Simulated assay, not measured.
Amino acid sequence: MIVWINGTFGAGKTSTARELIGLLPGSTLFDPERVGEGLLRLLPPERRAEVADYQDLPGWRRLVVETAAALLAEAGGVLVVPMTLLRQEYRDEIFGGLAARRITVRHVLLAPEETILRRRIATREEPGDTAAADLRVRQWAYDHIPAYQQALDWLKGDAHVVDNGALSVRETAEKIAEAVRTEAAGVCDIVQTPEPTRETVASGVLLFDDADRVLLVDPTYKAGWEFPGGVVEPGEAPACAGVREVAEELGVELAGMPGLLVVDWEPPAPPAYGGLRLLFDGGRLAAAEAARLRLPGPELRAWRFVTETEAARLLPPVRYERLRWALRARERGRPLYLEAGRPTP
């Protein structure tokens, strides 16, 4: 099990985590910041110069999952992780990766009032650092307060909130330990999707509203929006897999087999294996049908109909290219074969 202590810079995560491992028997401290620092040191200087925040490195997010899994395999018990996560898509990617390894996460948010937070930042000193370095750290913390405020809506919905503004470090740790023991800090409700061990075949289904906008869904277990659909099971026809996934994910029973729009070969990009990705045309959903859409809590967070332009802002680039060509195929009335999101000559 992991107790993930979230909060903006200066909220008291690390000091609370150090205190907490003394209160939770068999617990170990894991600070992903060390992973980020090590990864930056290993990068070539020209690549390092391009990185403003190591959290933006996909390699860091993968290493956090792998390192946490390795530590739990070695030490067992509880892993206490003090780490700021303000971008929901990074939370999804990391927590989803942990869930795929059957590692449960209890997410705790330290949320002191802003005036108290700013007072703490103003007096914060880093051991061994110069006054100039302390100033840089404080400014970094101040600069991230707006991003933290913007993230509060989803953070408070996802995490057990502890207002530690009037609490000592010890009292904060005791409050978290009690929440873990009583399960007031519950296990994050996130679907377990086993990591692929080879190439996969996956089917997505495009559903349209009366304005010809396409339906996208927001998974809880990986970054970015997606099409309704999923991995084709052994012995299952791809179109049938699409129909099954739409019923499971949205509660929509398609009247017939959807028509093929694109077949896209996604090349391996280690550690991902790639495989075949198919998109089908599921037709139009009437307004009454769209109003009855339901989402499975652990798997999908939200849905929305979007234009092609809006989809470009929500989908990762390779998925957007797949959608773009699927829409062209729909207009032309014939399916397309793609490789890495591009039609072959």
Rank of each mutant, 00 (worst) to 15 (best):
K13L: 10
K13Y: 12
T14I: 06
T14Q: 09
A17E: 14
E19F: 05
P25F: 00
G26Q: 15
F30C: 07
D31A: 06
V35D: 15
E37C: 13
R41N: 11
R41A: 10
R47D: 13
R48P: 07
P58M: 04
V65N: 04
E66V: 05
L72G: 03
A75M: 05
A75W: 10
G77T: 08
V78G: 07
V81P: 05
V81H: 00
V81K: 00
R87P: 04
I94G: 15
G96R: 01
A99S: 06
E114D: 10
R118S: 02
R124E: 09
E125V: 12
E126I: 10
P127N: 07
T130F: 01
T130I: 01
D134E: 14
R138F: 07
A141V: 15
Y142S: 12
I145L: 08
Y148P: 02
Y148I: 04
D153S: 12
L155N: 08
L155C: 07
K156N: 10
L167I: 10
L167S: 05
S168L: 06
V169A: 06
E178A: 14
E183S: 13
G186D: 10
G186V: 11
C188G: 15
D189N: 12
Q192V: 14
Q192P: 08
T193Y: 06
T193I: 09
A202M: 13
A202F: 04
A202N: 14
L206E: 04
D210M: 06
A211S: 15
R213V: 01
L215N: 04
L216I: 00
V217D: 05
P219L: 03
Y221R: 03
Y221C: 06
W225F: 13
F227K: 00
V231E: 10
V231Y: 08
A239K: 07
R244G: 01
E249F: 03
G256Q: 12
M257A: 14
P258D: 10
L260F: 02
V263C: 14
D264Y: 12
W265Y: 15
P267E: 15
A269D: 11
P270F: 13
P271H: 09
A272S: 13
L276K: 11
L276D: 09
G283Y: 05
A286Y: 03
A290H: 06
R292F: 08
G297D: 15
G297L: 12
P298W: 07
P298V: 03
R301I: 02
R301C: 04
T309L: 08
L315A: 01
L315K: 00
P316R: 07
P317N: 09
V318R: 09
L327R: 00
R328G: 04
A329P: 11
R330Q: 06
R330T: 07
P335L: 05
L336K: 11
E339T: 13
